[in-house]
């Protein structure tokens, strides 16, 4: 696995394509498995078919978008505090 002349096998486009395929199959399997395996819901909805998948995906999208929106207000350049505190090192 010498990486200098040639790209590392893990970052080659064909590997990444295969990884996406494998990942998609695993995702599908976790949902399909619910046909065979009973998922106990504590509050009705969380026992619905594929609830975990939808809930996980949706809450992550919401959190990322919320963080993004908050970032517009809260983000500052890295040296924001330096001018007031006189730090000369990060």
């Amino acid at each position: 696995m010498t990486e200098e002349p040639k790209e590392h096998w893990l970052v080659r486009p064909e590997t990444i394509r295969k990884l996406w395929w494998g990942f998609s199959v695993v995702l599908a399997l976790t949902v399909i498995a619910q046909l065979a395996i009973y998922v106990k819901g504590y509050f009705v909805v969380d026992g619905w078919f594929g609830f975990g998948a939808v809930y996980g995906f949706a809450s992550c999208v919401l959190m990322v978008l919320f963080a993004k929106a908050l970032g517009v207000v809260l983000k500052r350049p890295n040296d924001y505090y330096k001018e007031s505190e006189g730090d000369d090192d990060a």
Binding site: F23, L27, T30, Q34, I37, Y55
Partner: peptide, 9 residues
């Protein structure tokens, strides 16, 4: 299964 769905998605 529930946690795998949650985390992988």
């Amino acid at each position: 299964i529930f946690y795998l769905q949650l985390l992988l998605f």
